[in-house]
Every structure is written in structure tokens, then in C-alpha cells.
Amino acid sequence: MIIPMLQALYDPRSMLPLPTDSAFYEQAKEDIAFFGISSQVYYLLKKRGQLDQTPLFFRTWLEQSYTEALYLNLFIERQMHQILSLFEEQGIEVIPLKGVLLAERYFGHVGARATSDIDLLIHPSDLERAVNWIKSLGFILEQERIPSHFHISYSKPLPNSPIPLTIELHWDLLKERTANLNINEFWEEARPLEPYKHIKELSSYHTFYLICLHGWRHNLDSLKYFIDMIQMIHVLQDELDYSIFLKNAASHKTLKRITRTIAIVYHYFPHLTRIKEFPVKSTRLWWEYEAVRQQNDRTLKQYVNWIYYELFDFDSMKHTLWAMVGLISR
């Protein structure tokens, strides 16, 4: 139900009026809440001047959901800059990942993409110092560490909230021994984030790379990962050079992960070909919306998708074997 709506909102050639059937919006409301994309849908409708074409009950709910997410984003933004300022004082280099920075840079507003935590990339050599400093800010609840993983998480309780605020400290973007990704390349092309000296932000190219890998890591189990990629393709357009991107992915041994993930997004949102053609054509995608939306609806195709994700989305037998080891040890 929600995919056709998103297709219409993102397709620049689509000027069709929105449906008027209230049953459509009841289902759309359920889908939007399920995927946690109320902020994105609200902002797209408002940007296209179509918010007033929706029924009052839907519009009221969407505005309320957006406002709640906006206040949370503003709170998280203040917390993030408090952490960044502390790291700046201590000379610890940091790159914020996704979150409110992504919303501002590529969605156009801090409230246009909801977030719930803070993700930071740091150098492995700074990990111990970084942990000590975030603990000094009250992030004292450590989540269980996962062997071979690439980040650790700490949380702190929030007043009048059952959900704590979590910060993830990353030193890489993929599990150990499952790729040849060189995280130093991301650092080398990062640019300073004003007004800081030691705080940086990823280049547009590496931000898109991160978003693709992030979507793959979650097996595209939410439309929010689709929207992140679609939004960046719309914004970057010709700035995004797929030939260089795929060449580097082949070198990093992430090519299968990247190509299948992008191919799935292009399959469900074919208008993207008019904006930026993706040179890899793939017919074995396996991903199904129904299996993601209806979690109890498991088909053979969805099981094949899971097997591909767990074992066959790797560029070398060595990386596949390490993925199998990680799967068995869970």
C-alpha cells in the first residue's frame, strides 16, 4: 500500500492527485507507523504541496508524529553536539554517522528523517578514551559486546522516558573478515564539520556508500532504508559516479552486497533510472515487500532471500566462510 504512495511522491513526473479513499489512508497509516517513516512521508507531502489533499484524520496523525520526532531529533542533536564538543576538547577525531546530520544535509531539515540514537565513527586507537568520556556524560549502560562486531553501544536513562538514549561507537562499518573495506579511505576524504577542528563529516560519496551498506546490513527490512538511498540519489544525481563506486566496491569485496541492494531499490522505484541509471541489471533479487510487512508471511522466496543475505552476498569464499562461522556462533 505505501510503496505506490512513495513512488508517486518521489517520481518528479507523477502529478496524479492522491487517492481520496479513507481506507487507503487507514492502511497507509498502519504501514507508515510500522516502518517508522512518518517524518519522511510528512516532509515529502509538504514539499510537494499535497499534504492538504489527505484526509484530516491522516494529516492530523502525520503532523503529530512528525512533531514528536522533530522534538526528539532536536534533543538528540543537542546531546550529539555536547559529545562532539567534549571530544573536540580532548582532541579525539570523530565522524558522526547518519542521524540528524543526514537529515539536515540530504533531507533538508533536521526533522525530515526521524532518528533515535547517536552513531559516531572513531579511530580504534581512541576507543578506550572515547568510552571513558561518554561514561562521564552518563552513558554508563553497556550493551553486551558481540565478537567480531564493529561497534559498541552505551546508553543513559532519560527522565520520564522508558527508552534510554544510546550512542554507538563504530571503528568500522562491517563485521571483521567479511570484506576488504579500508575504513581509512573514509577518514581521508572526510571534511571538517564546522565549527570543529577534530570533528569531520563523510564525503557525499562515502555517505552514500555507508547508507547502502547500512541498508544491506538490515537486509532492507524497512522502507526507511529505501528512502535513505532514494533521497541521496535524488540529491546527488550526476555527482554520484556508479562506475567509480562499483570499481571500489569490487576492490573492497562488497560488490555483491552493494549491487543487489541498489538493484532492489531500483526495481521497486524504477523512476530512479531517469535520474541516475544504475549499470548493473539483476533479475535474482528475492526481496519481497509482503514478507517484510507481514512478518508471519514467510514464502520460499523470502527464505532464499535470507540465505543469499547470510551466505551468498559475499565476494569471496573466504568471506563466506567467515560469515558462516558468525552465523553458527550466534
Rank of each mutant, 00 (worst) to 15 (best):
V131W: 10
P270L: 02
E194H: 15
P157R: 11
P19D: 02
D52L: 09
F226L: 01
L327D: 03
L70K: 13
A8Q: 07
K200H: 15
T283E: 14
T54W: 08
P12Q: 01
A179I: 15
Q53S: 10
E88S: 04
Y25C: 03
L74A: 08
H109R: 04
K281E: 13
R191I: 07
A190R: 10
R78N: 00
G108L: 09
L120C: 06
S125P: 05
M324W: 14
R330L: 08
S125H: 14
G99I: 00
C212S: 14
Q64A: 11
Q295P: 06
R217M: 11
W133M: 11
E185H: 15
P124G: 05
K200W: 13
S125R: 11
H149D: 04
D119M: 08
W306P: 04
L158R: 09
H170A: 03
I167R: 06
Q302S: 09
S161C: 08
H218C: 01
L158I: 06
Y268C: 00
N305K: 13
I76Y: 01
L213E: 05
F312W: 13
L137C: 03
V94H: 07
M232P: 02
S161Q: 12
D52N: 11
G111C: 11
L127P: 03
K301C: 07
H81C: 01
I258D: 07
I264P: 01
L121P: 05
D228E: 06
T283S: 15
W216M: 09
P147E: 05
A114R: 13
P17N: 02
Y205I: 08
K318W: 05
R274C: 07
F58D: 02
Y209A: 08
E201C: 11
Q295M: 04
E288S: 11
A23S: 12
I328E: 03
I32R: 13
L240C: 05
L45Y: 01
L311K: 11
E26I: 08
I211E: 12
F312G: 07
S148R: 14
F278Y: 05
Y308S: 09
R191S: 12
I275Q: 00
L84D: 05
R113V: 06
V235L: 10
E68V: 06
P164S: 04
F208C: 05
Y303W: 12
K276S: 10
A114G: 09
F245W: 14
A33Q: 15
Q294D: 07
I32D: 01
L86P: 15
W133K: 11
K98W: 00
R129P: 09
H214E: 05
Y303S: 07
D238Y: 07
L6S: 00
V110Y: 15
E194S: 14
L246P: 13
L44S: 09
T273Y: 15
L165W: 11
P4E: 00
L158D: 02
L165M: 10
W286R: 13
P164D: 05
L169D: 04
P96D: 02
F186H: 12
S39C: 15
L62S: 01
S329N: 12
F150E: 01
Q7S: 00
Q302P: 07
W61H: 01
D21F: 02
F314Y: 13
F24E: 03
P164N: 05
S125K: 15
L51R: 03
E176Q: 14
M317C: 03
I122Y: 03
T273H: 15
I227H: 04
L102F: 07
L6N: 00
S136C: 11
E89F: 10
Q294Y: 12
Q79S: 14
R191K: 14
V131P: 11
E310L: 14
T115I: 08
E89V: 12
